[in-house]
Write a protein that binds this DNA or RNA. Structure first.
Lengths: 252, 252
DNA sequence: CAGATATTACGGTAACTGACGAACTATTCG
DNA sequence: CGAATAGTTCGTCAGTTACCGTAATATCTG
């Protein structure tokens, strides 16, 4: 089996398993649909059903969807992403080796055409703290994680693996208190090209020192909400859509 | 989360995912029930339903079981095994790191109280080919794999990992042609305590040489069918049942 | 081959899924 | 604000699931 198909299958099994074992399958379905940046309408279209059906599942009106439904759901979200250049599947592929619990992942994507650190920071209203000289470096994607959750479930080697998995990408840490804990895990050679902290009141001096010493750009975002951050990241993803695949008049 | 719970969860997700994505969920359910050495009657009892219900699922009368059903099914087979000493879950735990496709696994279990190589060979009517001096070594479990299938899907490092995962255990290879291909993969330090080949007409001279050189006992089984082999292995598993858990008069 | 054990096949029924569509509510943006 | 966009709610209904129980088969084991 080709590698791509294998990754696809592993991811599919993972999602399907999570849905089936959940006490509220609908919530998990929603989580994954959102992780794949797919709207109900587009998913519905792809499944050949009315959008209200998706909403009924996600809201829990249907409490125990059958395997056929789950299978169609999982295969469709993955296929839709693949048709879109595999931005999410490919990003996940890097995570697969790491065994990261998906509940710490708030958002993940590759950029179809890389964007620079400067462009990303402009997009999310981020202020660079250290590493100004690297603003023109290209980012291939980003990963946004829930730091407080991650600190609970990840060991320091877990963080290290996360850093390795985000090589050449931006690691966006939200729900950060001081920034110290994640940054101290920074040891290996392979690391993200950019750290963005969100939700810090008082940034830790050691975090800044470490970022300087380890030569990794560090920025903070002072956006109000995580939702706003997410929306701005979406806008960056969309900047260069894969036009060949778009014949239906929609501009996703 | 304790390690045991994590293994349990990973296995549960895997099974649930496989069921949900299958075109015939019932067949997959049967596969796993059998892998866990649980009878329909006992599973039904544990689920609080009539045995015909299980049969209906497995035979495919119900084509798209709901998540509730899948969840209950998966959790019950795992719990039943755990109540029984975790013979299968623990055996699987060693496989988890290896990422072995489950379709090559025909049977897997730990022995609650180890048995010797001699006892196992007596039980399955096996004839030792080389390694007579090691007949009194203890085996902690066994793994039975479909060799022809394994040769298709496993690389030689895949085999090596399989060998590592069966340290102190018996590796029973069925559908073997000459025994050469699996044995040549034998290189590392960590390896099964016993190879049993089933279905060989003419055992390969190189296989014997390798087993001798690598000091690993090699035996062949001349039993008619794989089914017979499976049944005899069952008998060995049952030899020392975990009596405290048995208050219902059944002798599983 | 008998007798026990395990599994299947199937008719029946209440509850629920899978789907529609129309009306409704948020949210964003010029 | 008003339109556009995204998602929700809900009545409705045909088809299916989830379950039972019983009778009919397999499958072992002595």
């Amino acid at each position: 089996m080709p590698v791509a198909a294998q990754v696809r299958q592993r991811l599919a099994r993972r999602i399907a398993g999570e849905i089936s074992l959940s006490d509220s399958p609908g919530r998990v379905m929603r989580k994954w649909r959102e992780m794949f940046h797919i709207q109900q309408i587009h998913l519905a279209e792809s499944l050949g059903v009315s959008p209200s059906v998706i909403s009924d599942y996600e809201s829990g009106r249907r409490q125990s969807p059958g395997t056929k439904t789950i299978k169609r759901f999982v295969e469709n979200i993955i296929t839709l992403d693949e048709q879109n250049g595999g931005q999410v599947v490919n990003a996940f592929q890097r995570m697969m080796g790491v065994e990261i619990p998906t509940n710490i992942i708030l958002d993940i994507s590759e950029f179809t055409n890389g964007i620079t650190i400067r462009e990303l920071l402009d997009g999310v209203r981020g202020q660079i703290v250290t590493g100004e000289e690297l603003l023109e470096r290209e980012l291939l994607g980003y990963l946004m994680i829930d730091t407080s959750e991650a600190l609970d479930v990840l060991s320091s080697t877990g963080f290290l693996k996360l850093f390795e998995a985000t090589e050449d990408r931006a690691l966006i840490l939200v729900n950060v208190s001081t920034g110290r804990s994640p940054l101290v895990a920074l040891k290996g050679e392979i690391r993200p090209s950019l750290f963005v902290l969100h939700g810090v009141e008082q940034i830790d001096y050691l975090a800044i020192e470490l970022a300087k010493r380890e030569q990794v750009p560090l920025a903070i975002s002072r956006l109000e909400s995580i939702g706003g951050l997410l929306r701005r990241l979406q806008a960056l993803r969309k900047q260069t859509p894969n036009d060949e695949q778009r014949a239906d008049g929609y501009d996703r």
